[in-house]
């Protein structure tokens, strides 16, 4: 065997070990796009909330004013229609991001000769889904459920909880893909904890966590692995 042949042998072993244990077909571009969708969604949400409070102020002061931070919401102050509108925006953003990620990762998987739905991607999905579903269920309980006659009124916790649980799901899934995902997760958790200290700025932290951080992360993955 020649030297290059030996080195090829080692390189092929390394590559197969990586491909068998890590899902390396995550697309950076889909991260960037998810961030852009999130920023658009946050903009739309800001407009809707602004209009809502603007109308409230119009009624009170006779002048339309947009507010940059919102009083902590509760069921008595906030119309249910507003909650549903915001919920709808979140669902559309989530759906668009997941669809984009699946399509672009599928393309990457073909390019990198890795099965899209193999044992690694299943492990990745499972480790991501557990904290994500737990956090999602907690948020639904806090926002929509009533215990006895007392309505839960924890809207202010939605942003920190979603960021923290999303961060945990990324850290837990990071063993099965690029190491960068772990750092993205840690950043989301820190951001969530800061958001918990500053109630009333949930939308801003959402835009930072799901918008800006995804764009930064996506760009890094794109430059490092996509091409």
């Amino acid at each position: 065997m020649e030297e290059t042949e030996l080195q090829n042998e080692l390189a092929s072993i390394r590559s197969i070990m990586e491909r068998s244990s890590k899902f390396i077909s995550l697309s950076g571009l889909s991260g960037i796009l998810a961030g852009v969708y999130a920023l658009i969604g946050a903009g739309a949400a800001y407009k809707i909330i602004g209009d809502y409070w603007g109308n409230a102020y119009l009624y009170l002061n006779g002048a339309k004013t947009y507010v940059t931070s919102f009083p902590s919401f509760n069921r008595y102050m906030i119309g249910d229609s507003l909650v549903w509108k915001l919920f709808a925006i979140a669902v559309v953003v989530l759906f668009a991001s997941v669809t984009t990620a699946l399509i672009l990762s599928n393309r990457q998987a073909k390019k990198k000769n890795q099965p899209m739905w193999g044992s690694v991607s299943r492990l990745l999905m499972f480790h991501m889904a557990v904290p994500l579903l737990a956090g999602g269920a907690l948020i639904i309980i806090l926002v929509f459920f009533k215990i006895g006659n007392i309505p839960h009124t924890y809207y202010g916790l939605v942003a920190p909880i979603s960021l923290i649980f999303y961060g945990i799901s990324l850290v837990s899934a990071s063993n099965f893909t690029f190491g960068e995902v772990k750092y993205l997760g840690i950043c989301e958790i820190i951001l969530g904890l800061i958001a918990a200290c500053l109630p009333g700025h949930g939308l801003l932290f959402w835009a930072l966590g799901f918008g800006v951080l995804h764009i930064v992360y996506g760009a890094r993955i794109y430059l490092k692995y996509d091409r």
Partner: peptide, 26 residues
């Protein structure tokens, strides 16, 4: 080559099933 590749996969993963192995090594 194939045996070495199989061993590489099993060194990096606790367990691996037949079909995933087949897809991975094509």
């Amino acid at each position: 080559r194939v045996r070495l590749q199989i061993m590489s996969v099993l060194a990096a993963n606790e367990r691996y099933d037949f079909n995933s192995l087949k897809d991975l090594l094509s």
